[in-house]
């Protein structure tokens, strides 16, 4: 066990956990931020995607010990009321089915648009390739990303 000082959604938080604990489980079990989901635990599905210093990362595969000194944004920190442009585009296209993957999809999309405000179809495909949607909402996700890019 060790104490780690984290910056999550602009707030300083300290947690006392095993240094190997992935950020995902610190968020979910210690900080009660359950929007970030577990899907595979091996960086293959993207359900656990958060933004760390501007990059979309798989929080299931990064230990909390590597998180100190970074700024992490989770789905809960994107906006107060769901009015981030990407969230609004998601609503406009009524993207979700079961919804389980969508926090991860949104975080990947946000990171993409922050670094590339006008992505091509190929840019979108590449950026979103790490996020599985078992319900198959890809066509809508892509449309929503394009809508968000325009706003």
């Amino acid at each position: 066990m060790a104490t780690f000082n984290l910056n999550i959604n602009g707030k300083s938080q300290s947690v006392d956990v095993d240094p190997n604990t992935p950020i995902l489980w610190v968020l979910r079990d210690q900080l009660d931020l359950v929007g970030t989901k577990y899907g595979c635990g091996i960086a293959q599905c993207g359900s656990c995607t958060v933004i760390m210093d501007g990059n979309a990362v798989r929080s299931c595969s990064i230990p909390v010990s590597a998180a100190e000194g970074t700024k992490i944004t989770t789905i809960e920190g994107l906006s107060e009321n769901g009015d981030h442009p990407v969230q609004k585009a998601w609503m406009e296209h009524d993207v979700p089915q079961c919804g389980y993957c969508q926090a991860g999809q949104i975080m990947s999309a946000v990171a993409l648009l922050e670094s590339n405000p006008n992505p091509s179809d190929t840019d979108i495909d590449n950026a979103m390739n790490g996020n599985i949607c078992r319900c198959g909402t890809y066509v809508r996700i892509k449309k929503a990303i394009k809508t968000a890019a325009k706003s």
Partner: peptide, 23 residues
Amino acid sequence: TSKKNVEVNKIITGKPLFTIDYN
């Protein structure tokens, strides 16, 4: 007539919705 998913806001803001989120 098309109506939006009644849960869409909760889904896109990461509210606890699923069993795995239960505490």
